[in-house]
Simulated scan of single mutants.
Amino acid sequence: MSAPESTRIGYIGLGNMGAPMAKRLLDRPGGLTVFDTRPEAVAPFTDAGASGAASPAELAQTCTLVSVTVLDDAQVEDVVAGPDGLLSTAQPGTVIAIHSTIADTTAVDLAARCAEHGVELVDAPISGGAPGAKNGTLAVMVGATDEAFAKVLEPFGTWAELIVHAGPVGAGTRMKLARNLLHFISFTAATEAQRLAEAAGLDITELGKVVRHTDAITGGAGAIMWRDNTSPLDPDDGWFPVFSHVRALGEKDLTLALDLGERLGVALPLATRALTDLGPGLGVGSGDTARSRSPRSRSPHGQKEHA
């Protein structure tokens, strides 16, 4: 059963992400209680009709569903299990949702401690940034029991557009870490592309416009993330021709970019790795272009060897 709309929700941590998320809970029938160490962060909520708590412990006295959006593992542990934390007063059946990105082991360990009090902890990290929080279009990846997941669906839906049950406690955080792995490797790749463009005499701000425009159309890296496993594909698999085509285009364009980098004296280590790993990563193996540029076919200085 989902949590009834009459459930009073507590929200702890009213920063750049927490404040807009909590704001979208103000109109829920059950009411909202908030806590933050900064009075100036709490004031807009109490002015709008929410209740303010002096501590997590006080908040847990009246709230059986609590969202936590604080900085790091240490703050999460203090809010949940510290001397004045939620567990000191939480009623059995309370659900504590951690939206902060923490270690998956922290989530699992805290969930075990919560269980000793009859409290369920779910790890529910979010993706979508401050704009997603403001617009109510976040994605949330939930590690929880089926029962706890059912309880958070309705309230999470006030600020999230996509709610994924990733698995048991810890799975939400593991999914968020995989998602952010892609995010920051992509950022690093963007800096490599900027170096190449700058060396070629291009305006990298204009390149940025092109990237943002076309990623909004194609979906960026997410456009290839349709498979349900990462095993090599059978040639009869329907995805095989699709990803073989992606590999062919990618190996061609990566080779052209690497050739440009060599002419301009710009090192492109991520592009070099991508040429090697693209086909196998897609499950279709390396193509002729990647094999021809393998380290065994090149000199120590990166130039092709000629017979």
Rank of each mutant, 00 (worst) to 15 (best):
S2C: 08
E5V: 08
G10S: 08
G10C: 08
Y11P: 02
Y11C: 07
N16I: 02
A19R: 13
A22K: 00
L25N: 08
L25H: 09
G30C: 03
T37K: 11
R38D: 15
E40D: 15
V42N: 12
A43S: 13
A43G: 07
A43R: 15
F45Y: 09
A48E: 12
A50W: 09
P56T: 11
A57C: 09
L59R: 12
A60L: 09
A60E: 13
Q61H: 06
C63P: 06
L65C: 03
Q75S: 15
V76Y: 11
V80H: 03
P83E: 15
S88A: 13
S88V: 06
A90P: 00
A90Q: 03
G93S: 12
V95R: 00
V95E: 05
H99R: 05
S100H: 07
S100Q: 10
I102M: 06
D104M: 08
A107N: 10
L110R: 11
E116Q: 10
V119F: 04
L121C: 08
L121R: 02
A124Y: 00
G128C: 03
G128N: 06
P131N: 11
G132H: 05
A133V: 07
K134R: 15
A139I: 02
G143E: 08
D146R: 01
A150L: 09
E154A: 10
P155W: 04
F156Y: 14
G157N: 11
T158L: 12
W159Q: 12
L162S: 14
H165Y: 06
P168N: 07
V169C: 05
G170D: 13
G170H: 04
T173Y: 00
N180Y: 02
F184Q: 12
F184E: 12
I185A: 15
I185W: 12
F187K: 01
A189T: 06
A193R: 03
L196C: 06
L196K: 07
E198S: 14
A199F: 00
G201I: 07
I204E: 11
E206F: 00
E206P: 00
L207S: 05
K209P: 01
K209Y: 10
V210C: 13
V210D: 15
H213R: 13
H213W: 10
D215E: 15
A216P: 07
I217M: 15
G220K: 00
G222C: 03
G222Q: 07
M225R: 07
W226I: 14
L233F: 10
D234E: 13
D237P: 00
F240W: 15
F243C: 01
V246F: 01
R247M: 05
R247Q: 11
L249G: 11
G250C: 11
D253C: 04
A257Y: 02
D259G: 01
R263W: 05
A271M: 15
T272Y: 00
R273P: 04
R273L: 13
D277T: 05
G283L: 02
G283Q: 07
V284T: 01
D288Q: 10
D288K: 08
R291S: 10
S292K: 01
R293D: 10
R293W: 04
P295R: 03
S297I: 04
P300R: 09
K304I: 07
